[in-house]
Structure formats: structure tokens, C-alpha cells
Amino acid sequence: MTAADTLPDDEDDDAPAGALALEIEIAADAAGGRLDKTLAEAAADLSRARIQALLADGLISLEGVPLSDASAKARPGLYRILVPPPAPAIPEPEAIPLTVLYEDAHLIVIDKPAGMAAHPGPGTERGTLVNALLHHCGDSLSGIGGVARPGVVHRLDKDTSGVMVAAKTDAAHQGLSALFAAHDIDRVYVALTRGAPNPPKGTVETRIGRSASDRKKMAVLKSSGREAITHYRVEQAFGPQERPLAARVACRLETGRTHQIRVHMAHKGAPCLGDPTYGSGPPALPVREAIAAAGLARQALHAAVLGFVHPITGEALRFETEPPADMRDLERRLAEL
């Protein structure tokens, strides 16, 4: 299984402008595994996720026939991979509608929908909150976050909905960052969980860092990682009182680590419903049926409350939004269990 030299751009008329063309020979004894995995192992400079994206875009072919199914078995033969040039590092403004809760000359508070990434990243170059803010705010957006993350002070996971604040000036960015660093921000999330954490009210205090077994996941660690503190309270349990099938849990963040609530709820044995990363097993059948009926296709987590002192004016601000339709519908169905 060998990778050929990169081909000049002008040798492939079908290649995107500026693309590089790779040729990879898969021998018979190396065939039979998943296509994306096999090609990623052969092309040292391309990750499996990148191979999957190229397949989806029709940029990988076998003996001249385009391929698209990443899970198909790899067949022996000569594969051609067209690799487009990197996307521009500077995000482009996009006219994406925003639900604005508050805005002045210094900052903007929005209710982020599920499915929108906070800022551009690999595989998510467009359609992000930053793209929308660049169009909405124009040149007023703070530049402290760098060219890829202007105005971004904190993040919500792509599939977590709720209240976010972004800075429009450097002074506001510095002030908001100081508030977050000092944990002087009121942040409350609503989670719908599998089962209910026990006891029904308490504090989870651990250290969180990258998982040793999967670098894309976070995990509770014994010694390394960073301190993570979540205060939680079960607001309503659904199903049998002695053994709830699901629950609505309010989580107040004292720290703000990556995936903190998702990791902490899973650590308590009550992961967020619909969480593809930390779900650790299916919920009871009635809950699965409720999830399907509600159309929930993400983790059931919503940033409901954001409160802080305006870093420029000193005004106390507090914003609260209800969960979006998918979570509200799921909660209604869970209440009927």
C-alpha cells in the first residue's frame, strides 16, 4: 500500500482550482477493511475525517469511478484523491438570521440555535455564529479573539442551544474575559437526562481533560486536567418515582470547561438524552420513543440563563430563554410517562 507523489494541478482537468492530486495503490492483501480507514492509513497527511469529507464531495475515485460511501469495503486498485486548497483563514460575513436579545455599542447577546458552531473550524468553515456576527456587526466586532474567532468570549457546543454573549469592542472583550476567568458569570443550563442524578441536588467537583483513549472526547481525570465544578438540581423526574426514566436538571456552572455539563452528567450516571458522545448506553424504550417522536437529534442541553455585569457601563444584565421546540416537545412527552 503506497502513496504516489503529488501530481501537478494541470494534470487533472476535473480537480478543483488549486487542488492537489494524490494516487494511492491499495494491494489485494490490504483491501477488505473500511474504505475511509484504509485510505487514511495509506495517506499519512490526511485524517480519517478528512477522507470522509473528500468522499462526500466526490473527490475520491477508484480506477476513474467516483466513490462516496466511507463505510464500504476497500477494494484493491489505484485510488485518486483530489485535495482542494485550504479554505481562507479569515471568516466571511454571512447573512444568517440571529435572535438578538440585547445589543449596544460594546456587546451583543444572542440566543444561539442548535446546529450552529460558535466559530469556524475544520469541516465547519461557514454557517457559524462568527460568520453571522461579522455580517450583523460589521467592522465593530472585537478582534481580540483572532481572525477566526472575532468577538468570541465563550462558546457553546455546536448542538447546544442558548444564550451567548459576544464582544463588539476590545475593551468589552477584555472585561468579559475577566468576568469569565473570575467565574463571576451566572450561567444556568437545562438538561434532559437519562434517569436522574443521585442525590437529586448536589455539586460535581472533578478535574476534566482530554480522554486518553479518545482525544476527541473529554473525561474526568484523577490528577491532570483542569478543575471543573457544576452545581445541579433535579427540577422534575419523569417515570416511576423510585427509579426515574428521565429528568429535567438545572446545572449551574462555576467553571466552564469543554463539554463540562455533558461529562459531569454522564459521570453521575445520568447523561444528557441524545448525546452521541457521552450517552453511554440507550435510555429506556419509552424514552427512546419520546425522543424519536419529538425529533430530537442532538444532546438535550440548553444554556437557559446568562447573567453578568456589563464590563463598560456597570449595569447588571440577566438573560433567560426557554429551550427550543425539540426539547420542549420531548419534555412534554416525558411528563406523560
Score class of each variant (00 low, 15 high):
32 G>I: 10
40 A>S: 14
71 S>I: 03
236 Q>A: 14
95 A>P: 03
123 G>Q: 01
254 E>R: 11
163 V>E: 05
34 R>G: 06
66 P>Q: 11
256 G>R: 11
155 R>F: 01
81 I>Y: 00
140 S>T: 14
286 P>T: 13
59 L>S: 04
330 L>T: 07
334 L>K: 10
108 I>Q: 00
282 P>W: 04
274 G>W: 10
82 L>R: 14
316 A>I: 05
301 L>I: 09
224 S>E: 13
317 L>W: 06
169 T>H: 08
140 S>M: 05
253 L>A: 08
40 A>T: 00
6 T>M: 09
87 A>V: 14
157 D>S: 08
197 P>N: 02
86 P>K: 09
213 S>K: 15
254 E>M: 06
95 A>L: 02
57 D>Q: 14
5 D>I: 06
30 A>R: 14
124 T>S: 07
209 G>F: 10
61 S>K: 08
120 P>R: 07
196 A>Q: 08
221 L>W: 13
183 H>C: 00
113 P>S: 07
218 M>G: 11
190 V>Q: 14
235 E>A: 13
63 E>G: 14
325 A>H: 03
113 P>W: 11
324 P>Y: 05
304 A>K: 13
182 A>Y: 00
125 E>Q: 12
72 A>N: 00
43 A>P: 00
224 S>N: 13
133 L>R: 08
13 D>Q: 03
131 N>R: 08
160 T>F: 08
263 V>S: 07
77 G>T: 07
2 T>N: 13
283 P>G: 04
119 H>F: 00
261 I>L: 07
193 T>Q: 02
265 M>G: 04
255 T>N: 04
323 P>S: 11
218 M>Q: 14
282 P>L: 12
323 P>N: 08
191 A>Y: 03
205 E>Q: 15
248 R>E: 01
187 R>H: 05
98 L>W: 04
25 E>P: 04
316 A>Y: 06
170 D>R: 02
175 G>F: 09
79 Y>R: 06
253 L>E: 00
199 P>M: 12
16 P>F: 01
24 I>F: 03
114 A>K: 02
263 V>G: 04
109 V>N: 01
190 V>W: 15
214 D>P: 13
245 L>K: 12
289 E>Y: 12
331 E>F: 13
179 L>G: 02
87 A>L: 15
129 L>H: 08
46 L>Y: 00
128 T>K: 01
133 L>M: 14
280 S>A: 12
28 A>T: 11
232 Y>H: 03
96 I>A: 04
47 S>R: 01
305 V>S: 06
306 L>D: 05
25 E>M: 14
38 T>D: 05
228 A>H: 08
229 I>S: 06
162 G>I: 05
259 H>A: 06
242 E>Y: 11
268 K>F: 02
9 D>V: 12
284 A>I: 07
201 K>W: 01
264 H>P: 05
186 D>Y: 10
29 D>M: 07
232 Y>A: 05
67 L>N: 03
159 D>A: 12
18 G>H: 10
49 A>V: 02
207 R>A: 11
74 A>Y: 08
82 L>G: 01
193 T>C: 12
161 S>N: 13
187 R>M: 10
35 L>P: 05
102 Y>D: 06
279 G>Q: 07
76 P>N: 05
208 I>M: 12
297 A>S: 13
299 Q>M: 13
112 K>H: 07
119 H>P: 00
323 P>T: 08
323 P>E: 07
235 E>S: 12
